[in-house]
Design a protein around this nucleic acid. Structure first.
Length: 147
DNA sequence: CCCCGCCCTG
DNA sequence: CAGGGCGGGG
């Protein structure tokens, strides 16, 4: 689901996990999961952006994210270990955009500001896509794929 | 107050 | 990932 939405609202989460009886703890736990997902995501982005800069890349346009990219593999082993489903192309676009945002920010030395990532977060949070209907209820999806 | 996102830590 | 703390927003 993270491949579609990096910032799902609590109501979204409840919609896509109908087989879960939510309470304060369960809800905040799921919220926490996505927060952790985002942290890993952004950390990878910053790491690869700085690496590109160190490697002499001068333009953000030189940076791309494909299914063959090291960055993509790093993310995929983290979110999609079993590699059991096709990552949407839109995610690659968002990832590439994020990578370039970090690259430009670091290249412009904006990272001197302690809160320089805030501006990037504000951009990325607007790039969420709609989650496919088939993602509702993991248990049902499991039945479909295993029967 | 509660909810939510981020930071930091383990 | 989970916990705890912090800050912003409703």
């Amino acid at each position: 689901m993270f491949y579609y939405s990096r910032y799902p609202s609590s109501t979204m989460l409840k919609i896509y996990f109908p087989d879960v009886k939510f309470n304060r703890c369960i809800t905040s736990q799921l919220i926490k999961w996505f927060s952790n997902f985002r942290e890993f995501y952004y950390i990878q982005m910053e790491k690869f952006a700085r690496a590109a800069l160190a490697d002499g890349v001068t333009s953000a346009e030189e940076l791309t994210v494909t299914r063959d990219s090291e960055l993509f593999r790093a993310l995929n082993v983290h979110y999609n270990k079993a590699n059991d489903f096709q990552v949407p192309g839109r995610f690659l676009e968002v990832a590439e955009l994020t990578l370039r945002e970090f690259f430009c920010a670091v290249a412009a030395a904006k990272d001197v500001d302690p809160s320089w990532k805030k501006a990037i977060y504000k951009v990325i949070c607007k790039l969420d896509s709609e989650v496919p209907e088939s993602f509702r209820s993991p248990s049902c999806l499991w039945e479909i794929t295993h029967l």
